[in-house]
Design a protein around this nucleic acid. Structure first.
Lengths: 230, 230
DNA sequence: GCAAAAGTGTTAGGGCTACACCCATGC
DNA sequence: GCATGGGTGTAGCCCTAACACTTTTGC
């Protein structure tokens, strides 16, 4: 383990793939996954969209840097934040850059309320193409991880506000997985999983009132093994 | 995204957690998971054991660096190599170091045949304690990932030579999962999974000869989503 | 023949899926 | 009353676990 002078050429960046859910403009009954991207103001890829991120500071941890990035671009605190992958191909950017990429969920209600700074815009993930650097590939991988993880953990709740109906939770799953789910079976499964707790409140609307649920704080949203607080 | 001069203080290392399987010295019918570690020859942690690794070179990719590390310490090529996690806590080492950690499997027969260089020793993972830096934590996380992944993918075959019996494959699962499995049900499950192909050869021994199988190359050992060749 | 591992058969139980059905509300 | 979404019941199917049983070898 000898420090070479060549080492100085390698720079470390942190980027974050931020997922939120919103009702589609075309049909309010549908949901779509959206993500904020930042317009680059300098070369390389000037004018192109890129993932929010920045250089790692010597005095901050990796997750701290991701949370800072997220705060700076969305003004939000994530309801879920996890490291995605470290990208370090030699030719992925001019100059040798290793990017530690995180992915995050923000709540639907918060995302729509947040005031986006200049140069930041939210796009549906489905229509995101032609991002700067290798960011298309990164988004594809993050989307795959999200979809995977929704299948075997409880992170879908990270998209929802404190109180929600079972139908809303089911719609989140349907939007992420891209298929419709049987309401009856969905209800039984999430109830059996202990992932949510029934409250005494109901949401009234056009039809029979629906019971409101809250996430069971005693359970982690996802089992991350021995790395709870990285 | 402005490059600060402080950035120069951050160094990038690559380390690898290397798993192999061997029969225990105490009881040849038992298997145990072993891992090579390197004795540090300089401060910090001089004389302690640490994961094999080194500084990332500007002209090599992350996985290339991990494979080089693996080759230098074991003389082997991995049958499976995957990125584990990027560790970058501010205080994890004197001077700011971000470590991109990989984990690898090497075949049982190759591992025992490999000539370990000076300063490298193989230890059972169960008895590994007091490694340098945060390497205890890294080994714990890698072990958790291995155990997890064996549950839902086919990587267990990465421990075995080209031809193996069903009993050998089952013993690998038993060693990694730490519990015994029903031979009859195990057989049916792996046969149904298409993960292995029957050959026409048999292994003779003390009892009824056992059919030899080979891994089905058409299937990936583990689904890694859109990141096939990182 | 006997011990032991290889390999096959069978059954009970749990979870998932599909879908029929009842309930409570606004209009 | 009626349309609609909320919520319950239930039967079939598949997968799994448990274990009895047969086969094949070395000694």
């Amino acid at each position: 383990m000898t420090q070479t002078s060549a080492q100085d050429e390698i720079r470390v960046a942190v980027s974050t793939v931020i997922f939120a859910l919103r009702r589609t403009p075309e049909d309010v009954r549908e949901w779509e996954i959206v993500m904020p991207v930042v317009k680059r103001t300098r070369d390389p890829y000037e004018g192109d969209w890129a993932l929010p991120g920045g250089w790692l500071r010597p005095d901050e941890g990796l997750a701290d840097a991701a949370a800072r990035t997220l705060r700076e671009t969305t003004g939000l605190a994530p309801s879920y934040l996890e490291q995605l992958y470290a990208f370090g191909a030699v030719d992925r950017a001019p100059g040798r850059t290793v990017s530690i990429v995180y992915w995050a969920l923000v709540r639907a209600d918060e995302a729509s309320a947040a005031v986006a700074p200049e140069n930041v815009e939210w796009f549906p993930v489905k229509r995101l193409r032609g991002l700067a650097f290798d960011h298309d590939e990164i988004v594809a991988y993050a989307s795959w991880r999200l979809q995977n993880k929704v299948g075997y953990s409880r992170i879908a709740q990270g998209f929802l506000p404190e109180l929600f109906t079972l139908a809303e939770l089911r719609e989140v799953y349907e939007a992420v997985l891209g298929k419709s789910l049987d309401p009856a079976n969905f209800r039984r499964q999430v109830e059996a999983s202990q992932a949510i707790l029934a409250t005494k409140e109901f949401r009234t609307g056009a039809h029979r009132p629906a019971r409101l649920y809250e996430t069971n704080q005693a359970l982690e949203l996802a089992d991350r093994g021995p790395l709870r607080n990285q």
